[in-house]
Design a protein around this nucleic acid. Structure first.
Lengths: 347, 347
DNA sequence: GTGAAAGCGCTAACAC
DNA sequence: GTGTTAGCGCTTTCAC
């Protein structure tokens, strides 16, 4: 008993108990072939006996793998309070779905996500430093603003990274995304089919590619149906912004009878305003949302919406990252998912 | 240029460029005293020049500190699907607030949270292994079920951990919590003050201490106001369960004119049902929620609710954990926060 | 199939 | 005030 009983057992301890060398223990721990069956048993018993768990730092030091990745939520950092950004994003059911998808994929791979928020220059540097230090093998980036400088910084530093959603300006980096235009088209077609004649939309922040795409897709589809003009009110993907946008729409276009909101949270806000003004949904105005996240079910009427397979997308994003980590030279790839219409009660 | 340019620079590289020893570089990196001003400058320049970032694994190996903690969401694991648990909890705005509070505190301490879900025996073992390996210095536990075996396992393994909320059965472990009874009392007093004569409550899952406390506090306060009996419908802290509970309450007690829901999500569900049955809120029935999380604002009328300072509690939880990490012998401590009534429109 | 030994990059005594 | 040196616990050639 040379080491104090408080220190965790090491490979050495196991080796001594099993009567073999460190190398052999290492081999059985890492499942390498070329170890005698019987010795494997003995070693495993010894591991059990001393309660051995391989030290990650020591392992990382030689393998050059952290076994963790950074899951970073990034924003512009132009807002007032710092904390509010983290609170808002982390409380968004959309992010919960992303995290859940990532966790689900990583779970079986033995890699763990470190949660980070990058909304200021300082915190952006933290993320970069974290990766350069080798604390994480790569980064998963969920960006909420267009002018996010993090993607290009990551590229410049040659750090493995994958984005959720196409970057605002083209860049050599992998990402997963949705065919937003197709999704918006689904919404447009439904609204027209429901007989709407005066259709409007509540868009997301227009500097974000996804918002632009949803808007473009919606307008194009409507044009094809013979409606050349679509009133639009810009929102910020929050319920409150959806309310404000709906108020504006109603004020300027009292005859509106169909609304496409670029996400469910804003649709939820719009619904509140519609009720307040005595408009029945879907009878007086049909409403369709986007995402199919939890608020869609927490509304009355329940939201008809465009489903985005967020969990699958997030899992794929994690998968792509692991590929890049394993094979540093891999060229960037993009994976686009298809949306689906979920018809419920609001349209 | 002995090492390939692809390998990250080490302390050695910096030392060579600065013309000093590794130890000196280490000293300035770690801000130790006893280094000549001028040499500090030189070293810092060299660090800048080679783009040095200290390797975490190497550092951890000697300091025996990972610089990360596990933020674990734990559940009973008795449910059907595994993924659904993660998705549900991570999408809950309540968890978003916890994460945000933790992140806010950790941000300046240079420690990072690793997100983990423990809802099965397997994943529970993962968490334990992660900590034993030294991959994280301690754990922050947000438990959603009463019979969670993780706390006692953590205690047995002598791993630093702090809980969000008191454990179901008394155990020598630190935690932060809210004075739930006081919060429920606030709700009861308000309802009575508003003139309600037939008050009911939608409780949380009754195996969870917080639910029990809110129920007890509510009943006791009402008893003091002269109301000996309070109808109760048990929910599961989700909007859907709130709807179901409200339906039951209405069916059995049509005359109800005041409802206290044990969280905002359930209050939101109750509101929907109340509207459906033509009950005006707050005129016909006054409704008060609990938490003051985002759904409280996304309702019409906006929810009057009992505010729980979740972010502060989470930050304190993180702070307690760091204390335990720094001083292993520290006895368990509990910190109880006070709730506050937020009066809006629903009561 | 197994062991010996080098070394990953860093910190912390300990000398000077 | 600064350098030397001995590990931290592990993986991985390289011999045997």
């Amino acid at each position: 008993m040379s080491r104090p009983p408080t220190a965790p057992p090491t490979l050495e301890d196991v080796a001594r108990v099993a009567g073999v060398s460190r190398a052999t223990v290492s081999r059985v721990v890492n499942g390498t072939r070329n170890v005698d069956r019987r010795i494997q048993e003995v070693v495993r018993a010894a591991i059990e006996e001393v309660g051995y768990a391989p030290n990650r730092a020591a392992r990382s030091l030689v393998t050059k793998r952290a076994g963790t990745i950074a899951l970073v939520v990034s924003g512009s950092g132009e807002q007032g309070e710092e904390d509010s950004f983290a609170a808002r994003v982390l409380s968004d059911p959309f992010f919960g779905r992303v995290a859940s998808g990532v966790l689900g994929f990583l779970r079986t791979r033995g890699v763990h996500p470190v949660l980070m928020v990058a909304d200021t220059e300082r915190t952006r540097e933290d993320v970069l430093a974290f990766l350069r230090q080798g604390s994480a093998d790569g980064a998963l980036l969920v960006s909420t603003h267009a002018e996010d400088p993090l993607p290009s910084r990551l590229i410049d530093a040659k750090l493995p990274a994958v984005l959720f959603a196409r970057p605002a300006r083209p860049a050599p980096i992998s990402y997963v995304d949705l065919d937003h235009q197709a999704g918006a088209r689904l919404a447009a077609d439904l609204l027209v089919e429901r007989g709407c004649r005066q259709v409007a939309t509540i868009s997301g922040p227009l500097d974000v590619p996804a918002s632009q795409d949803r808007l473009t897709g919606f307008r194009d589809a409507l044009a094809r149906h013979g409606f050349p003009y679509v009133p639009i009110a810009e929102g910020g993907f929050t319920a409150a912004s959806g309310e404000a946008a709906m108020e504006r729409l109603l004020a300027e276009h009292p005859g509106v009878d169909g609304v496409f909101a670029a996400n469910d949270l804003m649709a939820q806000g719009a619904l509140l305003v519609l009720h307040k003004h005595g408009r029945r949904v879907p009878e007086d105005v049909a409403l369709v949302g986007f995402d199919d996240s939890s608020p869609a079910l927490a509304c009355r009427p329940r939201l008809t919406t465009v489903r985005q397979p967020v969990e699958d997308m997030a899992a794929r994003m994690a998968s792509l990252l692991l590929d890049h980590v394993d094979e540093p030279g891999l060229p960037p790839r993009s994976v686009i998912f298809e949306p689906a219409l979920v018809v419920r009660e609001s349209a």
